[in-house]
């Protein structure tokens, strides 16, 4: 962590994973919805998550119709929209937070399209390191995928439990930064019990790419984070942090700190 905290401007995702690999540690990727529960809380939350040991932060742009999200992130998105938050004001919040960990802009396609052809340039200027578009799977729109790939931002691609083997290589080849492996069927949200066995899918991914593999969906407790971190390069936590942030920034930061300790311990 010492080496990472000395970097002032935002760090590339690749360098962060290299540093982690050198220390034999796994990445903790934390999602927050920009503007939830309030814009000022988001600024504090970004800073707090960095301090608690987040390696990568996903900054969610609120959308009116988040079909890939469960009730917790849906509600956070609605609250952020009620607070008037947009893609550009999400970038402003990031600027105010001044964090140095790499930040991935996590968005649905429509707000990104509405933000115009220079939206990716504005994101890069604001310090965004990567972009993830929930509803733009490989091959859905080659022209817009090329726009993202040429932007200079890392283009984070998703792999689902249903993804057939013959798509894996293409998804990795046309992605960068890391691969986001969805651990189970369904929308985002917390789940009780043991996480899905992602070992076989991680092994398949490793056979086609050197990109780090981060596993998300349904990981909400330190024990789950620890279990999953043993199977992959990183763990993504979303709804649990958003839920805690709804109570207080401190609750969310404490959750992330306890996950960090469980993963490193």
């Amino acid at each position: 962590m010492e080496s990472a905290s000395e970097i002032i401007s935002s760090e590339s995702i690749a360098r962060r994973f290299e540093a982690l690999r050198a220390e034999s540690r796994r990445a903790l990727v934390c999602y927050v919805t920009a503007g939830h529960p309030s814009p000022s809380a988001t600024v504090e939350l970004l800073q707090g998550l960095e301090g608690a040991g987040a390696d990568v932060i996903e900054l969610g742009v609120p959308f009116s119709d988040p079909v890939a999200d469960g009730p917790v992130i849906q509600a956070s998105s609605a609250a952020a929209l009620a607070n008037g938050v947009t893609l550009d004001s999400s970038l402003e919040l990031l600027g105010r937070a001044g964090v140095s960990v790499p930040v991935v802009l996590f968005t649905y396609l429509n707000p990104l399209l509405a933000a115009g052809p220079d939206a990716l340039g504005r994101a890069a200027a604001a310090g965004i390191a990567g972009i993830l578009v929930t509803d733009l799977p490989l091959g859905a729109d080659p022209a817009r995928e090329a726009w993202l790939a040429r932007s200079g931002l890392d283009f984070i691609r998703l792999v689902a439990p249903t993804t057939p083997d013959d798509r894996l290589a293409g998804i990795c080849e046309h992605g960068s930064g890391f691969v986001y492996l969805i651990s189970r069927m369904g929308v985002t949200g917390t789940r009780d019990g043991a996480p899905a066995d992602v070992g076989p899918m991680v092994r398949k991914l490793r056979s086609v790419t050197d990109l780090p593999v981060c596993v998300g969906f349904g990981i909400s407790t330190p024990a789950q984070a620890r279990a999953v971190s043993k199977m992959a390069d990183g763990v993504v936590v979303g709804s649990a942090i958003v839920q805690a942030a709804g109570d207080s920034v401190e609750a969310a930061v404490n959750l992330v700190r306890s996950m960090r300790e469980a993963m490193d311990g």
Binding site: A14, A149, R150, F155, A169, S176, F178
Partner: peptide, 12 residues
């Protein structure tokens, strides 16, 4: 495989 060395370049 593209990007065996430089993970940031593979999207290109």
């Amino acid at each position: 495989m593209a990007g065996k060395k430089d993970a940031t370049a593979v999207a290109n």
